[in-house]
């Protein structure tokens, strides 16, 4: 897992993204308990302070909450997970459109290509 990070971006932000992805995909279950900062740091092979910062960020976003004595949990609020899911979907679509536009495709052409790809059956 050592080389999973891009070195030119803050690692804590990359951790936040990874956690969001795991929460949305259900790999991290709603309401489940997170491991300790220390164990997570070892698992992700990062500095414990970096992990701490990522978890604080997730807390601010309302995806994680902490119980004073027993540790951190994934939110039970499915609504906020759904919101995050939609927000990330929007971002992916925006990036896609931006890339297609920069290649010179109009929105109409992009849509047609997209449609065609789906009809062919998306590979994988």
């Amino acid at each position: 897992m050592a080389n999973q990070f891009q070195a030119n971006m803050p690692i804590y932000l990359q951790l936040v993204d990874q956690f969001k992805h795991r929460i949305i995909s259900g790999e991290l279950k709603v309401g489940s308990k997170l491991e300790s900062v220390r164990d997570l740091a070892v698992q992700f092979e990062v500095n414990p302070n970096t992990m701490q910062r990522a978890l604080a960020e997730l807390e601010r976003d309302g995806l994680v909450y902490s119980e004073r004595t027993s540790g951190r949990y994934i939110t039970k609020d499915k609504e906020s997970i759904n919101k995050m899911r939609e927000k990330i979907a929007q971002e992916i679509i925006e990036q896609f459109i931006e890339k297609m536009t920069s290649l010179g495709f109009s929105i109409q052409e992009t849509l047609e290509l997209f449609q065609k790809k789906i009809e062919e059956g998306v590979s994988k």
């Binding site: 030119n8 971006m9 803050p10 690692i11 804590y12 932000l13 970096t50």
Partner: peptide, 8 residues
């Protein structure tokens, strides 16, 4: 991380 953020 602050340095990475400010310097890119």
């Amino acid at each position: 991380d602050n340095i990475r953020e400010s310097e890119g």
